[in-house]
Structures are given as C-alpha cells and as structure tokens.
Amino acid sequence: MSFSPWVRTMKARALVRLWSIFGEPLWIVVSMGFPVLSSLALSLLYYSIGATSYVGFAVLGGVMVSFWGNVLWSMASQFYWDKQEGLFEIYLTSPAPISAILIGMSVGGIIGTVPSALIVTGIGWVLFHPAVNAAWGGVILTFGLTLASLYAMGMTLSSLYLAYGREAESLNEVLQEPVSMLSGLYFPSIGSRSPFPLAIQAAASLIPLTIGMDALRKTLFYGNDIGQVWPDLAILAVMAVVLLFLSTYTLKYLENVGRRDGTIAVRIR
C-alpha cells in the first residue's frame, strides 16, 4: 500500500519524535518532572487552604501543562534547533512538504506526551481523589480540539521563531509562565469567577489553551455536555484551522526572507 509523499513525510517525522522518546524511556521520567511536581504542589495548596473540591483543577492543570511545555519546547523552538543542527536546510531542499513535517512533529509530540499526562493523572487520582462529574463525550471532544488548536499555535510559533536566533530560548522562558497564568491552567481565568478585568480576559481568550481549559473544566467537573459547550468547541475548531493556515503562510514567508537575505543556513546568530 503506497501513501502520498505528504503522509509518508508526516509519518516519518512523527516516528523520529516517538523513537526519541520511547527509545529512551528515561525521557518520560525526565519530561514528567515539572508537570508532576507543580501539579502536586498546587493540589496541596488547594488542599491546605481547605478548598478540596478544586484539587481536580490543579491535577487537570498538571496534565495540560505537559502538553503546553511540549508545544513550547518541542514545537515552537524545534525549527530553531533544527537550523542549528543543519537539518532545516535539508527540509527545505527536499521535496517533503513542510506542513507534513509540522503535523508529524505535532502527532509525535502529542503521543510522546501522553505517558507524562497519564502519570500526572494517576498520581493526582491516587493522592487526592478529585471529585469528577464528567460528560465523557464532551471531555474527549474538547480535549482533542484543545490539543489540535494548541499544537497549531505551536506550528505558528515555530515559524516565527525562525526569525530569531539565540533569543528563542529567552522568548520561551518569557512565554511559559504568563501563558500558564492567563490561560487559567489551574483556576478559571475567563468568565464570572475570573480575577482579571474584562480586557485581560479578552486578550487571554486569544490563546487556544484558555478556551480549552475553560471547556475542559465545564465538561470534566460540572457535567456540561457537548450541547452546552459547543460555542467553546466551535472557537477551538476555528482557531485550529486559522492557526494551521497561518503557520504555513508565515513559514513560507520567512523561508523567502531567509533565502533572499542568505540567513537560512546560518546556524548561530
């Protein structure tokens, strides 16, 4: 059975990522450190103040921070690192479609992050028994769309990061915590229970993770079904499609700029 070059490219890029993770099981231990410990600390914070009914928020936040960390460090910065290693110019000179490489990176990243997310869930479940009132159909659909839009954002960032040199890592460090806060990984950052003024909530809503976290909490802890969260799902779907097209466009644009300026093969600047 022969697949199109697009599918073969996507599969090949995903497999590289999966081999790098599952070929070295220690990676799973390594990558779960921050999500597990921060989720544990914030669960204990909810527990220590007597707000035990919200411990589940911290566990869910720990699961999603695994994916957010993966998007930031293994999607957004990836082309910058590929450029340093001399891989990026090979991508460009080969007939492999760049969109397939991006999707392959995402698929590999999502599958590779699942063990870390499962471990966070397991530890949170065993230690705190968070109260769950789930509409599972809604949870699964919301989770899928959140990841789709989040990784589409990662693809867009990976294109933009090509424009930067060594600043890329500093940018990641600047983005990681504020996005975690604004997107409400551990508490509702939009809606009536948000502490933020309306303008900040509006800005936060431009981040796919914000909409996704809000919908995930509604479906997982408050039993809202698909019919009740459809506006969130529709926004997530639109974000995923728009960001996907935007990433392809920006990548093409930056590729042309790089070719014109002769910086596309410059590894460190």
């Binding site: 103040i49 007597g50 707000a51 915590e177 806060m181 551990y186 508490f187």
Partner: peptide, 15 residues
Amino acid sequence: FASAMTVSIIYWFGT
C-alpha cells in the same frame, strides 16, 4: 511575576 500571580490567584479563587 506570573508564577507569583498564579499561586496567589489560586488561593483567592479557592477561598
């Protein structure tokens, strides 16, 4: 700053 805000808001939200 963002980290301090996050945990402080968690306390505010929880209570």
